[in-house]
Design a protein around this nucleic acid. Sequence first.
RNA 1: GGAGAGAUGGCCGAGUAGGUCGAAGGCGCUCGCCUGCUAAGCGAGUAUACUGGGAAACCGGUAUCGAGGGUUCGAAUCCCUCUCUCUCCGCCA
Length: 423
Amino acid sequence: MLDARFIRENLELVESRLKSRGTGIELDGFRQLDTRRRELMQESESLKALRNKVSDEISKVKDKSLVQDRIAEMRDVSQKIKSLDDELRGIDEEFDTFLLTVPNIPHHSVHVGASEADNVEIRKWGEKPEFAFEPKPHWELGESLGILDFERGAKLTGARFTLYRGAGARLERALINFMLDLHTGTHGYQEILPPFIVNKESMTGTGQLPKFEDDLFRIDGLDYFLIPTAEVPVTNIHRGEILKGADLPICYTAYTPCFRKEAGSYGKDTRGLIRQHQFNKVELVKFTRPADSYSELDALLGNAEEVLRRLGLHYRVVELCTGDIGFSAAKTYDIEVWLPGQATYREISSCSNFEDFQARRAGIRFREDEKAKPEFVHTLNGSGLAVGRTLVALLENYQQEDGSVLIPAALQPYMGGMERVGK
RNA sequence: GGAGAGAUGGCCGAGUAGGUCGAAGGCGCUCGCCUGCUAAGCGAGUAUACUGGGAAACCGGUAUCGAGGGUUCGAAUCCCUCUCUCUCCGCCA
């Protein structure tokens, strides 16, 4: 959420920056609501001031019969206040809804562009593996090895659900543990295991609501939702809190399953594990001082990259342009891993700085020291990494001509010493 | 699922025959004084949001005693709804 005062005082700037994302802003509507809101507020509050003053005087008079006329007068004032407040409530609601549906302003360093095609490649790590044979896509490898069962996943639930079996299930679990150990050990994050179902306030705090309800699984009859990412519960840990400056940055990592409806992606990535309604992810989340958030973003990105380096998987880092960054983000880097079975790079992590956009929605502040005014923190997060897609990358990159798959050394301790998945 | 208790400021904890309560007291914290250090002692201060004025320091207004409604000239205090916490019973991984 943007600061209403900031919008009011920087109308043109806000308009042009949002335009670069491809989203407009209804400035006239905002101006009208904002003006009317403040008019009503002033009128109502000055009447309240009068009522408070007179009520105070009435309280000092013992014989109330002497002040009957004043009481009657205040009865009318109260009626007037009530009707003003009723109107104000409506305006406030519209005003809040408006603010909650305006996306974040991109950081000035973000390249202006219309779509994915305008994203900028920042760097590459490693090399594409070479094969003396035609590399297969992971769904063929997974099925022939008996570790991924797409048919039974669909039987149990429906499309975009998969059953893992044997070494496949073990490999997924190994990746989760490997990532968590790396982030908690070497990178210094604290491990969190949050609820996988959250309420409406949490979804609003990070920006999924009110605009993107169609992407969420909702619990019937309740304002509860299955989390689409650990970002939601983990960022909302500190909703409504004032943190101590000395405690910043706060760095959390969490493994959770993620649930997404994938509305509007019919026909896309229908085969394999790439796009599932339920997938596993290890997430990294930071709360930082505003001045530190961009260096912390670089560090977070590096922490996510480290997972791929240790697994020996070739990847590139892409900086998203203004037209491609998400609703809440001010700046985003995607890490894309090489998938030889499909001869393409696929997103395996997305690392963003939300600046104070989520912090303002969720009321997450800090006080630099005892005397300082509370300020909004900056929130950041990134996948570290998407586990299912990491498994995909392992299968496709480490596949052998005989259909078996080698397990990289870093992962072997988590696989009970297993060096290869074969039939 | 059944029965009961409770939710007050950073923390603890007063406050229910409605008014002088943004809220006693204590702790903590900040600043100052004092004591050769520490401790103790003394004094002052110590919420947030919105809003009006001001270049600013700051000054004024409104709201906030779990949340939302209601009664009243006036509500932390009365009424209704909801949420959460705790205790006991039942059930259960």
